[in-house]
C-alpha cells in the first residue's frame, strides 16, 4: 500500500483527468452524438419501413378487394347493358315489322283502289267506244239499207236472225 501511494503520480493524475475530460467532451460532440443519432435514426427508419411495408401490404389487399368489387360491378353493368340492348333490338325489329306490315297493307289497299278506278275508267271508255261504234255501224247500215230495198230486207232479216240467235 505504501508503495502504491508512493507510485501515485499527481502529475499523471492531473493530465489524465484533463485528457479524459477533453476526450469525453470531444468524442461526445464529434463522435458519440452523431453516431448514436445516426444509429437511432437508422433503427427508427427500419422500424418505420417495416411498419409501412405492413400497411402497404394491407392497402394492397384492400385495393385488390376493391378492384375485384369494381370488376364485378363492371361485369354486372355490362351484362345488364347487353341485355337491354338485346331487348331494344328485338323491340325495334318487332316495331319495324308491324310498321312494315301496316304500311304494306296500306299500299296494297291503295293499289287495289287504284286498280279498281282504272278498271272502271277503262270499262267506261270501252262502253263509250262500243256505243259509238254501234251507232256508226247502225248509221252505215241504215244508210245502206235505205238506198237499196232488197238489201234492206236482207239486212233486217239477218239482223233478226242474229237477234234470234242471241
Amino acid at each position: 500500500m505504501e508503495k502504491l501511494i508512493n507510485d501515485f503520480s499527481f502529475g499523471l493524475f492531473f493530465w489524465q483527468a484533463i485528457i479524459l475530460l477533453v476526450l469525453i467532451l470531444l468524442l461526445v460532440k464529434f463522435a458519440w452524438k452523431p453516431i448514436m443519432e445516426s444509429i437511432t435514426a437508422r433503427e427508427e427508419g427500419i422500424r418505420d419501413a417495416i411498419a409501412s411495408a405492413e400497411t402497404a401490404r394491407k392497402e394492397m389487399l384492400n385495393l385488390k378487394a376493391d378492384n375485384q368489387r369494381l370488376l364485378d360491378e363492371a361485369r354486372a353493368e355490362r351484362d345488364t347493358m347487353l341485355k337491354e340492348a338485346r331487348e331494344i333490338k328485338e323491340k325495334m325489329i318487332a316495331d319495324a315489322k308491324s310498321e312494315a306490315q301496316i304500311q304494306g297493307a296500306k299500299m296494297i289497299e291503295q293499289a287495289k283502289a287504284t286498280i279498281e278506278g282504272e278498271k272502271n275508267a277503262a270499262l267506261a271508255e270501252l262502253k263509250t267506244q262500243v256505243s259509238g261504234l254501234s251507232l256508226e255501224i247502225a248509221e252505215k247500215l241504215l244508210k245502206g239499207e235505205l238506198s237499196n230495198k232488197a238489201s234492206q230486207t236482207v239486212l233486217v232479216e239477218k239482223m233478226l236472225d242474229e237477234v234470234k240467235l242471241n
Binding site: S9, G11, L12, Q16, I19, L23, A31, I35
Partner: peptide, 22 residues
C-alpha cells in the same frame, strides 16, 4: 511523461476512429 504521451496518442486515435465513423 510516457503515460501522458501514450494517453494523448490513444486519445488522438480514438478521436480519429470515431469521428471518421461518425
Amino acid at each position: 511523461t510516457k503515460n501522458v504521451f501514450s494517453l494523448l496518442i490513444v486519445s488522438a486515435i480514438l478521436l480519429f476512429m470515431f469521428t471518421s465513423l461518425a
